[in-house]
């Protein structure tokens, strides 16, 4: 007991000292002494209609950085994430998730009805996050994670068979996830195709015009800001993440007994 008290007091002192160093002591460097040079660069270039050769045309600096300044990095991050999902799909290959070994009652009617009512609201909110990825904090991945709550809730409240009943199968999830990835892949090459057609210099993943590559994707539709390629990346990523996670949840909810039984069956055949 006494030892615990000593440890707790020491921890409290360490936290106080650390927070003092970090804030009042100036331990974070020039953070509190004005705006840093790097920040000034981003503030001047993320959304600057007066400097069309040096802007991402998005007021949301994080999205601008993630899908424009360092777009290739994000592209390969996305690839890593989907390779992980491919791994899960490979592990469960040949397992028929449509077989039912029990009835799947789920939770009580109260939970089920409330869960069902949440679905349309959840779709609206998740899609809003995706469609505002270039305007406000959030974006494709966050929106997809919010959307993937729906299959998770349905599996818990209803049982995984319910997803089969509403025809949200592993195959459909895989297909829609691939549509999302295809969207990202196509968006990567759109500026190059425009450049080839018009005989202009262009880079892959280019969003707005550069000094030596005057190809720009439309930043506005009417008076609405869509930030060129950023909205396309966000929406594609939204689709890919939503159904990537859905696919994982479906695979993870397959009963162990069902998997083992089918694997044994395979073993006997060969």
């Amino acid at each position: 007991m006494k030892k615990d008290m000593i440890v707790a007091v020491c921890l409290a002192i360490v936290i106080v000292i650390m927070s003092y160093i970090a804030t009042l002591g100036g331990g974070l460097g020039p953070l509190f002494n004005g705006v840093r040079p790097l920040t000034i660069i981003y503030l001047n270039t993320t959304l600057n209609i007066h400097n069309p050769n040096f802007t991402a045309m998005s007021p949301e600096a994080v999205t601008a950085i993630v899908w424009d300044y360092r777009g290739l990095d994000t592209l390969f991050e996305t690839a890593v994430f989907y390779l992980a999902i491919i791994g899960s799909v490979a592990i469960y290959r040949g397992i028929d998730e449509k077989l039912r070994i029990s009835e799947g009652f789920g939770l009580s009617k109260i939970v089920k009805v409330v869960t069902k009512l949440l679905i349309p609201m959840n779709i609206a909110i998740a899609t809003s996050i995706a469609l505002h990825g270039h305007l406000t904090p959030g974006g494709g991945f966050q929106a997809g994670a919010a959307m993937a709550v729906i299959p998770m809730l349905l599996i818990i409240a209803f049982s995984r068979y319910f997803l089969l009943d509403i025809r949200l199968s592993r195959g459909l999830a895989l297909a829609l996830r691939s549509v999302g990835l295809l969207g990202i892949a196509l968006t990567v090459f759109i500026p190059v195709v425009i450049g080839l057609v018009n005989g202009l210099n262009a880079y892959i993943m280019q969003n707005q015009a550069k000094v030596n590559a005057p190809v720009s994707l439309p930043a506005f539709v009417g008076s609405s800001l869509i930030s060129g390629s950023l909205i396309m990346y966000n929406v594609s990523e939204f689709l890919a993440v939503t159904f990537g996670f859905t696919l994982l949840f479906i695979l993870l909810s397959i009963e162990e007994g069902l998997v083992k039984e089918q694997m044994r069956g395979e073993g006997v055949e060969h």
């Binding site: 069902k116 349309p120 779709i123 609206a124 899609t127 509403i166």
Partner: peptide, 14 residues
């Protein structure tokens, strides 16, 4: 558009 889509997808359930 989103409302239309989510309504269409969930009307059978709700």
């Amino acid at each position: 558009v989103v409302a239309l889509l989510s309504g269409y997808l969930t009307s059978n359930l709700l």
